[in-house]
Amino acid sequence: MNLKQSNSEKISPSDDAIIEIIEMHKWFDDFHVLRDINLRVGRQERIVICGPSGSGKSTLIRCINRLEEHQRGQIIVDGVELNKDIKNIEKTRAEVGMVFQHFNLFPHLTILENLTLGPIWVRKTPKKEAEETAMYFLEKVHIAEQYLKYPGQLSGGQQQRVAIARSLCMRPNVMLFDEPTSALDPEMVKEVLDVMISLAREGMTMIVVSHEMGFARSVAHRVLFMDAGKIVEQNTPDEFFDNPQSDRTKLFLSQILH
């Protein structure tokens, strides 16, 4: 498999990298899931990762906040290298927001409590201030009136927007999205993508695992294609979709675009 990297130098909006991954490998027992990953993500850069299922794209972003442990190479997030040091990991996790495919809201807490939990316990923000911040972000994802409800009372799209707001309350420098719209009913995909697009406009650094090609085209600086644990191709969205280089990418695109 050939790694192509055509005219990709102009895209990085900022030179100092917020995330740097160098020669990273990961295994699940004997299974080599990530092979020699090298990736620099600049501040305010937005990256969409796509690829067939099992290609390691979710595992890759889960390594960035150490939900998965890598075995070789380096991952440096905002100047801090991720290693066994639990304090570093907890600090990094507080700086890196994560949105999951299945939302993972806390069902026993109200929407407001879901949002204030992190700021209060991790950032030690006073309760009142945390609630004000929470309401600000709920307003932003257009769901403020539901703040006293429990997650189970909301639709999937609403829950995912709450999950995004929950991450934003921690004031992260980077947001990771792990297939944020794949578990949603089709008519709810747009409301979540709209929130993500407005987030992008404000200059948030984002790494999104997604097959929403429209989103990738309009928002991403760079699209990464992964297959069998490798980054096979990366390019600007227009180049990537209109002029894919590797055969594997062409096949994949032809399958998802019908």
Binding site: K91, R93, G97, M98, F100, N104, F106, R166, S167, M170
Partner: peptide, 25 residues
């Protein structure tokens, strides 16, 4: 598992994750 991951992703430590998220449920 998602509950543990969500709690960890916010930056809660083990004791907080257990006390605030896992044990109540």
């Amino acid at each position: 598992k998602g509950q543990y991951e969500a709690a960890e992703a916010i930056g809660l430590n083990y004791v907080q994750t257990m006390r605030l998220i896992v044990l109540p449920q």
